Simulated scan of single mutants.
Amino acid sequence: MKVLVLGGTRFFGKHLVDSLISKGHEVTIATRGKAKDNFGDKVDRIIIERTNSDSLKETIGKHYYDVVCDNIAYCSNDVKALLDSLKCGRYVMTSSASVYENQHLLTSENEFEPLSHDLKWCSREDYRYAEVKRQAESALFQEYPKLQAVAVRLPYVIGEDDYTNRLYFYVEQIINGNPMNLDNINEQIGFINSAEAGEFLAWVAEQKFVGPINGNNIGTISLKEIIDYVEHKTKIKAIYSSEGLEGSYNGQESFSLDIDRASNLGYCFTELNTWIYELLDKYINRANSAL
């Protein structure tokens, strides 16, 4: 298949492109031309301005793609600018668990229905992140009902290549001896590995189903379990203080995403505990090397 990827030069986007290439697809990555990649001659490249519909029509609008994988659709205007400018057979949008207003363990897809959400044409700055992602999904499914489209809802994505450093924050503060102010140490949180997120998106690109779908590694973990592991491995005790640095995941209550829909369609997620401790080991080595 001819696949166009927007947002394929870093984090799970790179894993998506690698997976598509390994499956034998003809991949084009569309970027602003500012980020380098290591794909060599394995991909074609197009420089675009994502929010400029004229730019989109003059570049990707000249071609037909079997699938478009869009990792950078943040709002309804993003969706409209893109889908009004190109022709494709299938559109896979990376969405977020943030679309769910009442997150809890095993949150299912039917707990946010984009077809009934009040659609507002908006830019990324108009609302908080959760609402602009809801608007992106609402625009997709309400305005383009004939398009074979999927919204892939992901929890926190983590990995060695996680530029947000949200999980690394806890490891770094423990090793550096910095006090932390944490308000949810016992909450159970769901994650997905960045490599698996990319593989899942590539798998979705090859399927025929439409609508929202959750992706989540099997199982959850608490910050206490994470901190206990780091303390055990480093022999350094975490310091807690109301005056300390605010935790990256502060305010997050226990939650994970129900993956029955993906499982029933044939995708098998790995268990969280098979890789997260190895990731923490790498974070520990990274923090020690930075001292």
Rank of each mutant, 00 (worst) to 15 (best):
A149Y: 05
N165S: 11
F11E: 11
D162H: 05
L147H: 08
I46H: 06
V204Y: 03
L280H: 01
S242A: 13
T164G: 00
S116K: 15
I221R: 02
L280V: 08
E199M: 11
V150R: 03
L182S: 01
D118F: 13
P212L: 10
V157C: 04
M180C: 13
E243A: 13
L245N: 08
S95C: 03
G198K: 01
I259S: 02
L140C: 05
V204R: 02
S138R: 01
G7M: 10
L201N: 03
Q142I: 10
N102M: 10
F141S: 03
T51C: 07
A195I: 15
L119C: 09
D37H: 15
R153N: 09
S138V: 02
I226C: 10
D183G: 15
Y91C: 08
D66H: 15
S53W: 04
K224I: 05
Y163Q: 10
I158D: 03
N102A: 11
Q188I: 01
H104V: 09
E26W: 05
I72M: 14
L280S: 00
I227G: 03
A35Y: 06
N214P: 07
G215V: 08
Y91D: 07
E231G: 09
E225W: 03
S254E: 09
Y168E: 02
S98I: 00
Q148C: 11
S263Q: 14
S95G: 04
S256V: 04
A290Y: 10
D54A: 12
C88I: 01
V79E: 09
T51F: 10
F191Y: 15
S222F: 06
G159H: 00
S116Y: 13
A151I: 06
I48Y: 05
E172K: 14
I213E: 05
C69M: 11
L82C: 05
I46L: 15
T28R: 07
A238L: 10
H104M: 05
K146A: 07
V157S: 04
D54P: 00
